[in-house]
Design a protein around this nucleic acid. Structure first.
Length: 765
DNA sequence: ACGAATTTGATTTTT
DNA sequence: TCAAATTCGT
């Protein structure tokens, strides 16, 4: 055994070693959280190279850019100088389509539309085709198309299902949308996979060629693959079935994007000779944390049972804290972090705060800033998604792909140059009639009827600018963007604007220039630069890649972004019903299980300390409402949790609050709403003079109402509500703390209440 | 045609 | 709450 190889096998347990040493044939690595999966995969790659496999024959596919660069770096440090191709699925798709896209009718200079751009296309198609959307939002329709694409149902294959109005709309829109995309030489994110899958399916020789090129294919997070990705992987593993999939069904959290958990659950059926390796020893978390995670995930039915264990220490108990509201939650956590740093116990980078949705980060940010704790938020799409950046890039996009109508739309009149709605309408009509692109129509603008002279002039010089930019396309990207910024008048318009916002826009544009320069410098060595490559990066790479792992800052991120990461101390906030089992996911068994996995992923990121928290009152969309602790909390081992009520030290609160709520009942908004008066609006002037809940609390009235037992209410009884005034009970149900009433108010219409939590009182008392 | 002002309306997660 | 869409005034 060579020295290099024995070094590779050092400090590996038996299962890990088995996976690392596996060379030919399919391999499935079922890797629990913290089981050293990345280490195994990267070591296996090193081992393959050691066995004489050429670096070019190895393809490693990941889901996110973050994961790709992590793996690339770690392979790099194990076997310096070896150029293994590590890529996200989408980048891989783009690369294949640049090479073979013409086989599916796609020009090699195609544009990749982000969600906003493709939504724009969809809206235009809906308009142009005069399709009755019957109340379905473009988002909803887009989601349906996306889900079809993820299942590899093409526009021509799509069949409307009887009794589904949405599917009938999709049956009309999808083909038109797809045609429009192809006309614009554009693809959306889903196309990057679907086109490749269909390409491989319809072109056996290309499939064979690629299968041969990529002898050893590795997939990370296999549980998150959808049908399209699955087909791609299988197509690359026919003649050389050396597919190594790594994954964990318990960490499948992308079902909403078409991920099909059966891909991993049935891997063994798809590849009968597969070798299955289970990595069950956890090297990350304490025993306490692991037990909580394990018990929670045990409530899922669709999974492969794993027995997680660790030799790590017992550790401190997992904490569950109830805060009064989100600001108290945020301040409490911020102060705690601040104090720990002050005491010198921890560095800021030891801490991470996870939440379900991005919106939940606000109060947390505010509190951290107030406490003077440095933090960074990991959020996708920020930079390249900014309006000014997209505007500038649109010029480049159009120069690269003259058919790109979205880029034309975006850039033609920004900065404003006198081409208004009417002129655009004319252009659109002309383009539609002649079957040309908008840019082509603009070229012919002098001969288009009904265009104002001013508009024709503006269009002519605009077209000239685009042509000039095109001619620069072989120059450095910096030069191209510099030209756009100056000659389009974009920076001039911003400079001359008095708006402070525009000042920061200007700075962002300068940052873009810097970004382009860096790209030029980097690609000089790699020799795959150029405008198109730069644009592709802006489409497929988000800022998450630049997440400063080194910086000494607290990390804030959504649960979805946490996969593959670990932190000494983790705060999991807003564990509330409707937020962590998200209200849009909790109605189906699959949805609920996926939410549970999301919680599982979050919990298992923690090494030493884990604090979970929920609040009693949360401001949501401007409204303050009662929050109910997440049902997942009840599924965790009670005696493992150290429960803290941050406001009153009333440890029973959690139990009471939870038991009072009937989980099997559908969530009833009005019943749990605390009616804080809003400023008087014309609609409800009657509320204007009423007291706030806070005033009520202070005046002792609330104490009085608390004494009214739910059983004292009867059908037909007249009751009084502090905000809505008098009303009559029209329906009653349940008993004890689950007792609910429907009340018809004279002033506010019908409302429903959980009596134990409502401020209702019988009118007579 | 443009920008300001107002209204509305919609909200998960990401490539 | 906040951003997008629409209307309104210049």
């Amino acid at each position: 055994m060579s020295i290099v190889m024995s070094a590779l096998l050092e400090n590996l347990n038996d299962a890990q070693r088995e996976a690392v040493l596996h060379v030919d044939g399919p391999l499935l690595i079922l890797a629990g959280p913290g089981s050293g999966k990345t280490r195994v995969v990267t070591h296996r790659v090193a081992h393959l190279l050691e066995q004489g496999v050429r670096a070019r024959q190895v393809l490693a596919l990941t889901f996110t850019n973050k994961a790709a660069s992590e793996m690339r770096n770690r392979i790099q440090s194990l076997v310096p100088g070896e150029a293994v191709w590590v890529s996200t699925f989408h980048r891989f798709g783009a690369r294949i389509l640049r090479e073979f896209g013409e086989l599916v009718g796609l020009a090699p200079n195609f544009t990749i539309y982000d969600t906003a751009d493709s939504r724009q296309v969809l809206k235009r198609v809906l308009e142009a085709e005069k399709i009755h959307v019957m109340g379905y939002s473009p988002d909803r329709i887009a989601a349906a198309i996306s889900s079809a694409k993820n299942k590899l149902i093409t526009a021509t294959d799509y069949q409307a299902r009887r009794g589904s109005p949405l599917s009938e709309i999709v049956a009309q829109v999808y083909p038109a949308y797809q045609q429009r995309m192809l006309q614009s030489a554009a693809v959306d994110f889903d196309d990057l996979l679907m086109h490749v899958a269909s390409l491989l399916y319809h072109n056996p020789e290309v499939r064979g060629q690629l299968d041969n090129r990529f002898r050893y294919v590795l997939v990370d997070e296999y549980q998150d693959t959808n049908k399209a990705q699955y087909v791609i992987l299988k197509a690359l593993s026919v003649d050389h079935p050396n597919l190594a999939a790594t994954g964990d069904p318990d960490q499948s959290i992308y079902g909403w994007r078409g991920a099909d958990i059966t891909n991993i659950l049935e891997f063994e059926r798809d590849f009968p000779q597969v070798r299955v390796v289970r990595l069950e020893q956890n090297y990350r978390s304490t025993k306490c944390i692991l037990r909580v995670a394990d018990q929670l995930i045990a409530h899922n039915t669709r999974r492969k049972k794993k027995s997680l264990f660790t030799d790590n220490e017992e550790g401190r108990a997992v904490r569950l804290v109830a805060y009064g509201d989100q600001d108290l939650e945020a301040a409490g956590i911020a102060e705690e972090i601040h104090a720990a740093i002050e005491r010198g116990e921890r560095r800021a980078s030891d801490f991470a705060i996870f939440y379900r949705t991005n919106a939940l980060s606000r109060s947390m940010e505010r509190a951290l800033r107030a406490a003077g704790v440095p933090y960074q938020m990991v959020r996708g799409q920020e930079f390249y998604g900014r309006k000014e950046i997209k505007d500038v890039l649109a010029y480049c996009q159009l120069a690269n792909n003259p058919h790109d109508d979205v880029a034309f739309d975006r850039s033609v009149n920004s900065p404003t140059r006198g081409i208004g709605k009417k002129s655009i309408e004319r252009l659109n009509l002309h383009a539609y009639r002649h079957g040309t692109s908008l840019l082509e129509a603009a070229r012919q603008s002098p001969s288009i009827d009904g265009l104002q002279k001013r508009a024709v002039n503006a269009l002519t010089s605009y077209v000239q600018l685009i042509d000039e930019v095109s001619s620069l396309a072989t120059d450095s990207v910096e030069a191209v963007i510099g030209t756009v910024i100056e000659k389009s008048g974009y920076s001039k318009a911003l400079r001359e604007s008095g708006d402070v916002e525009d000042q920061s826009r200007l700075e962002n544009i300068e940052e873009l220039l810097t970004d382009a320069r860096q790209f030029d410098e980097q690609s000089e060595d790699l020799s795959d630069g150029g405008l198109e490559a730069y644009l592709e990066r802006t489409w497929l790479v988000n800022e998450t890649d630049d997440w400063e792992t080194e910086a000494d800052k607290v990390t804030l991120m959504t649960l979805h972004a946490t996969k593959g990461l670990e932190f000494p101390v983790v705060y999991l906030i807003a564990l509330e019903d409707g937020i962590l089992p998200h209200e849009r996911s909790r109605d189906t068994a699959e949805g609920l299980e996926e939410e549970r996995r999301l919680a599982f992923v979050g919990i298992t990121r923690a090494e030493d300390l884990l604090q979970m928290s929920y609040v009693r009152m949360r401001d949501y969309r401007g409204q303050r409402r009662m929050a109910i602790p997440s049902s997942f909390l009840m599924e965790m081992p009670r005696d493992e949790l150290e429960m803290v009520d941050a406001r009153s030290n009333d440890l029973d609160f959690f139990v009471d609050e939870y038991d009072a709520y009937d989980v099997d009942e559908p969530y009833e908004e009005p019943s749990t709403q605390i009616d804080l008066p809003k400023p008087a609006t014309p609609k409800t002037p009657i509320t204007a003079h009423l007291k706030t809940a806070a005033q009520l609390a202070g005046s002792g009235e609330s104490a009085q109402r608390a004494r009214v037992s739910p059983d004292e209410f009867a059908l037909g009884m007249t009751v009084v509500h502090p905000e809505f005034g008098p009303g009559k009970i029209t329906a009653l149900g349940g008993s004890g703390s689950a007792r609910k009433a429907t009340v018809q108010f004279a002033a506010a219409g019908e409302r429903r209440f959980v009596l134990a939590h409502s401020p209702l009182r019988p009118a007579s008392s």
